[in-house]
Structures are given as structure tokens and as C-alpha cells.
Simulated assay, not measured.
Amino acid sequence: MLQWLIHILVDAAVLLIAAKLLSTVHIKGFSTALLVALIIGVLSFLLSWLLTAILTFATLGIFYFLGIGFITRIIAFAIVIEIADKLTSDFKTDGFMASIWLAVFIALAGGILDAILF
């Protein structure tokens, strides 16, 4: 449970940083970032595995055979971010490419956090 809470806080910080760095990501404040990080975390838990399985099946597993299966996970995570964009009014991504970049940033931050703390 503590690991999940830390990830939510780090994801919220990454959302704020990404909003500053990317002109295509808009977020109102830290409370909105926490809400969006929570929505992304829950949706990722509930839907990410299904989206990854569908994308793997649709591509005939080519990314996994090539050893770059993380691409399907990033795209699935970007779809989750797009869903979170539609669920909240204070968070906006301009296009799918912004969601992909945001998914990469959050995945990198989560991987670094896991390597350091857990």
C-alpha cells in the first residue's frame, strides 16, 4: 500500500513537470495532478493488462519476438492517460503523441523509483 501511495505522489509530480516541459499537456495544479495520478493508477490496474493483451494480439506479438514489448505497454498506458483526460476537466493532453510522451515519462520515473526504493 505504501509503495502505491509513493507511486501516486511521484506520478503527480511527473505530471506537473511534464506540463511545464510539454506545451501539449495542461494541468491546473497539484490537487488535480494527484487526482489524475490516482485515476491513471486505478485505470492502469484495471485496464492496462487487457489493453496490452489486445495490442499484443493485434500485432501478432511481433514486439515481444523482437524484444521490445515495452512499446505495447507504453501505448496501452497512453490509452489509459487519454481515458483519464476524458474523465477530468482540469487535465488536458493535446493529441495522442502527448499522451505517449507522458506515458514514457511516468514509466521512466516509476522504473527509477522502483530501482531506488524497492
Score class of each variant (00 low, 15 high):
33 A>Q: 00
80 V>M: 04
84 A>T: 07
17 I>C: 12
79 I>T: 09
6 I>K: 14
75 I>F: 04
78 A>V: 05
89 S>V: 12
21 L>I: 15
29 G>Y: 09
36 V>G: 02
89 S>G: 13
34 L>G: 04
58 A>V: 13
59 T>H: 07
74 I>C: 05
50 L>Y: 04
60 L>C: 11
10 V>Q: 06
49 W>C: 02
21 L>K: 09
14 V>M: 02
84 A>L: 05
37 A>V: 03
90 D>G: 11
25 V>E: 04
72 T>M: 02
24 T>N: 15
54 I>A: 11
55 L>D: 00
7 H>S: 15
88 T>P: 07
39 I>K: 02
76 A>K: 04
30 F>H: 09
83 I>H: 10
17 I>A: 15
73 R>I: 14
53 A>C: 01
15 L>T: 07
64 Y>L: 10
5 L>A: 13
84 A>G: 00
67 G>N: 07
74 I>R: 06
51 L>C: 01
67 G>K: 08
12 A>L: 05
18 A>F: 07
94 D>C: 10
18 A>S: 13
53 A>H: 01
32 T>H: 01
76 A>I: 07
13 A>E: 09
20 K>R: 15
91 F>T: 04
5 L>S: 12
57 F>K: 14
29 G>E: 10
63 F>L: 06
7 H>C: 13
91 F>G: 01
16 L>I: 08
13 A>L: 15
82 E>D: 13
49 W>N: 12
